[in-house]
Write a protein that binds this DNA or RNA. Structure first.
Lengths: 167, 167
DNA sequence: TATTGTTATACTCTATAACTATA
DNA sequence: TATAGTTATAGAGTATAACAATA
């Protein structure tokens, strides 16, 4: 009863703190070794795994950032650095096709070894193979469940018209 | 071999994303129901659990924020709102004793039920009791290990003198 | 009308370095 | 000299709302 409640408190705070600390470490490595933010890194990685190295903004948005403008901002930084290219999509003139460039691929390749080393040391250092399995299993479910709940800012456009309130 | 590598990739990204999403949801609840950031919430909670409701800045810093100035900033916001009180420590004139006020306790109490409900729903909703146990166990170790590694900004004062590099 | 994406703007948070004061 | 904390400042990131354009 009470023991379970304590487990939950422990699990909750451990997740929050481990997530924050790991992100902090990882951001430092990415910034130091390749002058990238974590979000930029994720965008590049997604593009590198996509056919043709191309995705539309909306595709990228799923699981990387919370607001559309935030993604525009980050993609803009990547474009400025020449790591991605943006052009109007051929099939849908509204859409923007983002493509990783050669420079982008090289940047990714130059960062990856150090990144893997950092994660292996800082995250997996104290874990057994079973631990990793359990963590992957449980946190995948948590992530999927959280994605389910309205993020409240990546989608909220339909009813974007609740003005009123003449304070 | 390769399967283990994939497990690691899954575990790594699941942790990063679950942590970010959960924080996002939690921040919204705290902001909406009590106009607090997560850091402010943690500070208040720490103080509420301390004897006399008092801690020194340095004590609070452990596990809440990464830079001293960041803590000063957040504590300043709490003080402005009347949720904490700051006064020079009696025993050590350099130190600042931060104390939660009655208003602070009330704010915390008013937020807590909704907070617990949010976490139970968003985080623990899809988990069994065993899952929670495993998560608490593994992530506690990860957190402890990460704390071990120099955060690189909460402590770096001694050799604060590596100028050079006249680019 | 709904969807895709950008822009302008304001704001929150964080970090660095310099500084004060006490131990 | 080392420790506790603040301040000034600057920068990165994010969200909101308004907007343009295509489906």
């Amino acid at each position: 009863m009470d023991a379970e409640r304590r487990q939950k408190v422990t699990a909750y705070f451990a997740l929050m703190e481990a997530g924050a600390l790991l992100r902090h470490h990882v951001e430092q490595q990415l910034r130091r070794d390749g002058d990238l933010s974590y979000v930029q890194f994720r965008i590049l990685a997604q593009l590198a795994n996509a056919p043709e190295g191309t995705l539309r903004m909306t595709d990228i948005a799923d699981g990387v950032v919370y607001s559309r403008s935030g993604l525009t901002y980050q993609a803009g930084l990547l474009a400025q650095s020449g790591l991605v290219r943006r052009e109007t999509s051929p099939d849908d003139e509204r859409a923007v096709a983002v493509t990783i460039t050669q420079a982008g691929k090289e940047r990714l390749d130059s960062i990856l070894p150090g990144h893997v080393a950092t994660v292996n040391r800082d995250l997996f250092g104290p874990l057994s193979e079973d631990d990793v399995r359990a963590m992957a299993d449980v946190l995948s479910r948590v992530r999927d469940h959280l994605r389910t709940i309205p993020p409240r800012s990546a989608a909220p456009r339909p009813g974007a018209k609740k003005v009123e309130r003449a304070s």
